[in-house]
Structure formats: C-alpha cells, structure tokens
Write a protein that binds this DNA or RNA. Structure first.
Lengths: 141, 141
DNA sequence: CCCAGATCCTTGAGCACGTCAAGCACCTGG
DNA sequence: CCAGGTGCTTGACGTGCTCAAGGATCTGGG
C-alpha cells in the first residue's frame, strides 16, 4: 500500500492555478477575437453554441450560471440581431430560445472558426493532448 | 527524424479547449467567491495581487490587456475603498498605483484565501500536478 | 372548484467593466 | 522652440451581472 500522495503546498496550488488561468485566458482571447470578427461577443457566441436545439431560458440561465433576468437581456440582444427567436414552450410561462436560419448559419461559422483558431492545442502532440485531456477530466470529475 | 505528430482534429481541439474553459471557469468561480467574501470583485482582487510594488497605470492596463481609461475606473473604485493610492511616477504624466496599508493587509488575505481555496488541484496527486504544470507550460511557451 | 404556493419571464435599478474618442498636461528630441 | 508622442482623464455607450418586485401561468391539495 503506497503512502498517500503529498498534499499540494499553497505556493504550488497557486502556481498551477495561475497557469490554468493564463492558458484559459489565452484560449478565451482567441475565442473572443474570432467571434468578434463574426460580430458577436464571447457570451453571445457561447449562447449560440449552446442552442443546438430550442432551449428554455431557465435552462440557459442555469447552464450559464447566471440569473434569469440576465438571460432576458442576452436574449433581447440576440433576437434584435435576428439570430434567435422566442418560441412558446411546454406551457405559457416557458419561453424557448431557438436559432433562426441566420442563427444556424452563424453558429456553424462560429464552431468552425473557433476550432480552426484553437491555438492552445497546437503546441502539443497527440500523446500530450490525450494526457492533458485525462488530467483535466480528473479535475472536472 | 520521427514524423511530425498528427495535427489535432477540429473536434478534438474543440473538446480540449472546452475542458480548459470548464476547469478555468471552476477555478475562477472559486476565486470569485473567495474574494467576494473579502468584499472584492475578481478583477479588483487581481489588481491587488498585481500591485506587489507600485505600478504605473499604463503598465497595469497592459498587464490586464485593457484600455487605459478602464484602469482609471478600476483605480477610482480601489482608491475609494481605501486600498490603493495614486503616487507620482518618473514624471508628472505618470501615475503609480500603490497599495495602502489596508491594501497590503487585504492583499495578503486574498493570497492566502485563494491558495487555501484552490480546489482544482486537490484531485491530482503530485505526479499528475507536475505533469499538468509541464503541459500547461508547453502551451504557454 | 378554489386558491396558496411555485414557476417562469420581465422590468427596473444599480454596479462593474470594457471600448472608443477626445482632451489636457507633460515630456522629448530634432 | 515646438511638433509629435506619452499618460491619464473624462464622457458616452454597450454588455453583462445581481437583486427585488411584479404579473401571468401552472399545480396540487383541500
């Protein structure tokens, strides 16, 4: 029975967390730049990607981890841009957000552009990418 | 000379990037919650951590990757909270932001709280943490 | 059937943060 | 000396976020 692995020191934990932030910030900056070229803020792009199918606003708020009223504002701007429309849900209280045809097209563009522009993985070989995936999944479990 | 490693597929790149976001978002949510208990927004806390020594506002804007006018607003709120003061820099155009005594105390608290609350590394053993660090450093290089 | 309580979205107020443009004081070097 | 550059500030505007309250609708127990 091998001994328990040592707990991370505070400095070590901090250093590793800072690296995660920096990598994620870089990825996020890539994403933001790419979607800005498509006329979207990063959050709007995230919402478009999330709307693979019509989604209740409540569910969207939960997924985004924000208040329902915030989703109202986001939805307002996306409907104003003609990318999304409101559809009645399972009862009259529920509103689904559904992509318009233009929204579907733009969503596909976003997905392609984002993946093509992903620079964070470009520097790793296949084994490293697999390992990183594994480690991140362990953190997320 | 071994062959070039295969390039990541679009789906693979996207999946790995999404994992990074999710891990970073979790870490960021931890950070935000911890510093909120100390009465700070996450950006304000980041600024306090960055002000280990008096720093020109220009430099801070560059480090944060935002416009100088934005730093003016951030500085305004931090000075209003008594955590930061403006000091003249190398010439009369330059303003340094320097922590007040209260700012120094709160900064130390932030550093401790953040490191203590870091959950993203808790699930990895020492070897895994080292490996993750190495992979992230490769991405950042 | 009735209605209290729950759900869902909206509205409004206020805050933080971000960009951009313009302005002013100050600095630099030809 | 002064044109051009630097650094910060101000102001306008947009986005996103929370919180509280409100109205419409739904649900299930009495």
């Amino acid at each position: 029975m091998p001994p328990s692995p040592p707990a991370p020191t505070l400095d070590e934990a901090r250093a590793l967390t800072m690296r995660l932030y920096r990598v994620a910030d870089r990825a996020r900056a890539d994403f933001t730049a790419v979607v800005a070229d498509l006329g979207l803020t990063s959050l709007q792009a995230r919402v478009l990607l999330q709307l693979g199918e019509p989604t209740p606003m409540r569910a969207l708020a939960e997924h985004l981890g924000c208040d329902a009223s915030n989703v109202t504002g986001i939805a307002h701007r996306l409907t104003a841009a003609g990318l999304v429309e409101r559809v009645e849900g399972r009862d009259r209280r529920v509103k689904l957000l559904r992509l318009t045809a233009e929204g579907v097209r733009l969503r596909a563009q976003v997905a392609e552009s984002v993946a093509a522009g992903a620079t964070v993985t470009a520097k790793l070989d296949a084994a490293e990418r697999a390992r990183l995936t594994q480690l991140l999944d362990k953190v997320l479990a």
